[in-house]
Design a protein around this nucleic acid. Structure first.
Lengths: 185, 185
DNA sequence: GTCTATACACCGATAGAC
DNA sequence: GTCTATCGGTGTATAGAC
């Protein structure tokens, strides 16, 4: 359907769109072939491990992208409150303002998940730790900071889901705006 | 594997466990047969429409159960704050304290979702409306009540997901406790 | 690196005996 | 109502030409 044999980056983006929309079990090689413009056999040239390897590569790429777009912005010398706002904006970009989804969450369940579950758990623990540290910078005591970190992350993923459930993914951005308003610091 | 030919309720519960854990696309008739203790052909006696009909019946059952266990408790003459706490407890029961999942959310994506998306959207709109009404009973102005309703629902689904992502589904209950503490009213 | 053709397992679903 | 047996289709994956 698109993206006639181009760079690997373009290839990965086409594959990701399918996995993100259909999940691991719902994605077929035929769909991946159509999305990339390649034949099924050609996909095995790029990913000898087949569907599983594609998902694994995409998962690592998504973790890196979420790190870069969102969590990396928790660092720096800006006021904590602004770092948290930048983080939220980065997360919004990562999920295309609510129109897309988080591949890390998508691939965590289904037939694929079990292989990656430990990696994902470790990564989220680290991310929550860094979120909590930022809330501490903003003046919260450790226990409260940890709660705020968990609530913020749950709010992001929750609004991403519920906005889709009610059929209005665009509402995600509106809810993020409200979340930013109520940040401490 | 279990539940040798018993009541329809038992049958539905076995089917639900599989769909809840594996999603629609990840669930196979072989798994459903094993879970119920029936042969594949026997499942078609109970559900002539096959896998799709099973999912549709289970979806309606889950909507009814979520209504009964959680949202119904928003009504009554108790103080709004206590109604909201009861609602949260009911939601926790519905998802087995974080160990289970919400089948309505699970079936909303994947190859099954498109058929039920409109029903689900309508149902969630009504539920959010009733949540918002309860927050208004607790003294919140309409716009704030609507925001609190959305935030509460997103918090529930978000914590349900993130607790699983970090590999500690039991943490869900802890987060709910904190959410209850911060309710208005 | 891409293709066509194909292997082979498993999918959802059905036929028909009991 | 349950079973065994089987169907047609599709899934993932491979062989081998170009």
């Amino acid at each position: 359907m698109a993206n006639r044999g181009q760079s690997r980056k373009t290839l990965l983006r086409a594959l990701r769109e399918v996995f993100e929309a259909k999940g691991f079990d719902g994605t077929t090689l035929t769909q991946l072939a159509e999305s990339t413009g390649l034949g099924k056999a050609s996909l095995y040239h790029h990913f000898p491990g087949g569907k599983g390897e594609m998902a694994a590569v995409l998962l690592r790429g998504s973790v890196a992208e979420l790190e870069q777009l969102a969590f990396a912005r928790l660092a720096g010398r800006l006021p904590p409150r602004q770092r948290l706002e930048n983080f939220i904006d980065g997360f919004s970009d990562y999920v295309s303002g609510g129109e897309g989804n988080c591949l890390v969450a998508v691939l965590s369940d289904g037939s694929s998940g079990s292989e990656h579950r430990e990696l994902i758990a470790q990564q989220f623990h680290e991310w929550i730790r860094r979120l909590a540290a930022t809330f501490e910078d903003a003046g919260a005591k450790p226990k409260r900071a940890e709660r705020l970190a968990n609530d913020l992350l749950a709010g992001l993923y929750g609004h991403l889901l519920t906005a889709r459930l009610v059929g209005e993914p665009g509402q995600f951005k509106k809810h993020l705006k409200n979340m930013k308003k109520r940040l401490p610091g």
